[in-house]
């Protein structure tokens, strides 16, 4: 017994629906601050990637005749040089490479672990949930600096250790956020419908739970990236970060701060890059939160 359809309807193309993601994207595109932030971030990222081609100077070349020189266009030192006579413009961009990479990779690691861990704990619930979350609490109580210094002592200074250390700390908050969201999503009828259809638990988590908790996760992610960049800068400032001649914004700012009075350009340029990047991520996060917030709908 089938419903009579209008003639030829079988030939009609299926109408494309607008998913919630598409709706959110449209709302985001209407947010001017978020658009500007995205454009600026894209420019900074492109500059970081194209750094070797944007300046005639290599990042580790020392110009003995131009140590701590102010910005000058004749020699194409747009940002001046640092205390060792290296071009600051190209070093700032190389610093952007490290800082952005640390930010994105460490956030990626925390995202992967945090989402899976939090969704599993929240979905399974009961004793397993308590056990898993007590472990998170335990990790939270570990002093972070102590953890980093310990890693450095055991494995030596290595940029990948920074990713590991930062990721290992950042996923804790992510796991808590995802668990909370999962607890509210798993009570909804469509999860029960999936159970009734005989869908396996693992599939329910990956197919239903995770896509539905992703909104707040994405917002938190854009706020984690600047936090990680800041932490990396802090570690580098303390001398626990990247190793010479490689640099990061934190290292550059630390060096600049020491020469603040004699060579202010050494502080101003890296610091403004860092500040602009952090602003942009925060504005983008704000825009995403407004775009994804279901209460707006």
């Amino acid at each position: 017994m089938s419903l009579a359809l209008p003639d030829g309807s079988e030939q009609l193309l299926a109408i494309e629906g607008r998913s919630l993601w598409q709706d959110a994207w449209r709302r985001l595109l209407r947010n001017k601050a978020a658009i500007v932030a995205m454009i600026l971030l894209a420019i900074i990222a492109a500059m970081a990637v194209l750094a070797p081609w944007l300046s005639p100077h290599p990042y580790d070349e020392i110009y003995w005749e131009r140590i701590q020189a102010p910005p000058d266009f004749a020699n194409q030192h747009w940002f001046g040089t640092d205390g060792n006579g290296r071009d600051l413009f190209v070093r700032t961009l190389y610093g952007a490479r490290v800082s952005l990479m640390v930010g994105i990779l460490a956030t990626g690691v925390s995202l992967l672990i945090g989402v899976l861990y939090g969704a599993t704990a929240g979905f399974l619930g009961g004793r397993i949930d308590s056990l898993m979350m007590r472990f998170v609490d335990f990790m939270y109580s570990m002093p972070f600096m102590f953890f980093v210094i310990l890693l450095m002592v055991v494995f030596g200074r290595n940029i990948f250790l920074i990713f590991v250390a930062l990721g290992a700390v950042e996923w804790l908050t992510m796991a808590r956020i995802v668990r909370g969201q999962t607890l509210s999503v798993k009570r909804r009828d469509f999860i029960e419908a999936a159970h009734a259809a005989g869908v396996r638990k693992r599939k329910i988590i990956t197919r239903h739970i995770i896509p539905n908790v992703l909104g707040p996760v994405i917002v938190y992610m854009t706020l984690t990236i600047p936090q990680v960049i800041l932490t990396e800068s802090f570690l580098s400032f303390l001398g626990l970060g990247v190793q010479e001649p490689l640099t990061s914004w934190g290292v550059l700012i630390a060096e600049g701060a020491q020469q603040m009075e004699s060579a202010p350009w050494m502080l101003i340029f890296p610091a403004s890059f860092l500040a602009v990047t952090l602003f942009c991520f925060n504005f983008l996060g704000d825009g995403l939160r407004d775009a994804l917030d279901p209460k707006d709908r």
Binding site: L5, E10, A14, I15, G17, R18, S19, L20
Partner: peptide, 11 residues
């Protein structure tokens, strides 16, 4: 209607 196959529930 089968054309609605790609629509989303909120629609």
């Amino acid at each position: 209607l089968p054309q609605l196959i790609n629509r989303y529930p909120h629609e």
